[in-house]
């Protein structure tokens, strides 16, 4: 059984408690405008070109048997309709200026890779299955979680929760912690910002509360999107009514991923947005805490 993954990040400090190894699954059913891993949205592996690494040898062009590579004054571009995601260009590129974002890997091999840092996990750390939306590959994710759990590794999944709850029921026996995204409370806004309705997401949250699984909620704080008092209060009231998680993390936005959008040829509406002001984030956190005492914030902020 194969998983399609984007990347493995070792010694991750931001994907749950302790030190963790995070595997990013490729493919997502939400399309959030602010997404930090835009290359993870598409299920199909895509080639990406890095200008700073390119030595201009055109090896990619000659290695592509689908005629999908265009070289012009802007450098290398891909005709994504012609591209078959075969990866020949990335494999032959001498300087790794082309990377194929996404690869298939057998679950056993993946498991062996993920446990290499077991010595560093400590009592709290472990492996986090993230994405994309990991539950879009529920079957292989469940098998992976089972293997990890049997090995005694702490397993977390990072999910947006927009799918049939039965998928969660299957993976839950092997999961120690769920990092659950609640982004926008207003259903209309949710639809316009992520292209999906949030009804299922909110319902699944209620079910998770009943299941007593360990839960952290994460809310990305995005200027002109999720950072309104109204949104935070709306989410807070919902959480209070549905049941408290162990923590509610308001995650400060940064635009460090803007070059990813450039490489994918996407004009990104958030590219000029700087760090959130500390005062703003502290205000939102205080607001959240009036209703949900375990609210907190994380990430870099601007002090000015």
């Amino acid at each position: 059984m194969d998983a399609t993954i984007l990347d493995i990040q070792r010694m991750s400090t931001e994907d749950g408690p302790g030190l963790r190894t995070t595997v990013f699954f490729k493919g997502c059913n939400l399309v959030c405008g602010w997404c930090h891993n835009p290359e993870s949205i598409n299920f199909k592996p895509d080639p990406n070109w890095f200008l700073s690494k390119c030595i201009g040898c055109s090896t990619c062009k000659t290695s592509c048997s689908h005629g999908a590579i265009i070289r012009n004054e802007d450098g290398i571009q891909f005709d994504r309709k012609k591209c078959q995601s075969c990866g020949a260009c990335a494999k032959r590129c001498p300087s790794n200026a082309i990377e194929l974002k996404g690869k298939k890997i057998h679950v056993t091999k993946l498991f062996n890779e993920l446990i290499k840092d077991e010595a560093y996990f400590g009592p709290e750390g472990g492996v986090t299955l993230s994405g994309g939306e990991v539950m879009m590959q529920a079957e292989v994710a469940t098998e992976l979680a089972r293997l990890l759990k049997n090995k005694g590794i702490n397993v977390a999944i990072d999910t947006a929760g927009c799918y049939d709850y039965r998928l969660l029921e299957k993976i839950m026996p092997y999961v120690d912690l769920i990092l659950y995204d609640l982004k926008v409370f207003n259903p209309i806004e949710h639809m316009s910002l992520t292209r999906v309705d949030n009804k299922l997401i909110l319902e699944n949250y209620k079910r998770l509360i009943v299941s007593k699984v360990r839960l952290w909620i994460r809310t990305p704080i995005i200027q002109n999107a999720t950072d309104t008092d109204e949104n935070i209060l709306g989410l807070a009231e919902f959480i209070k009514e549905a049941g408290y998680p162990e923590r509610w993390e308001l995650c400060a936005f940064n635009n460090l991923c803007r070059s990813k959008y450039e490489r994918l040829g996407i004009e990104w509406q958030y590219k000029e947005y700087g760090l959130l002001k500390r005062t703003r984030l502290e205000h939102l956190t205080a607001l959240a805490m009036t209703v949900v005492p375990m609210a907190m914030y994380s990430g870099a902020v601007a002090d000015i």
Partner: peptide, 23 residues
């Protein structure tokens, strides 16, 4: 520096050192 930005992160540095003892 972000690894040791706050108390929670210093705890993570400690796990790293404990892992280094082993590996």
């Amino acid at each position: 520096p972000s690894l040791v930005a706050d108390t929670g992160h210093k705890e993570k540095l400690k796990y790293f050192l404990k892992g280094y003892v082993k590996n």
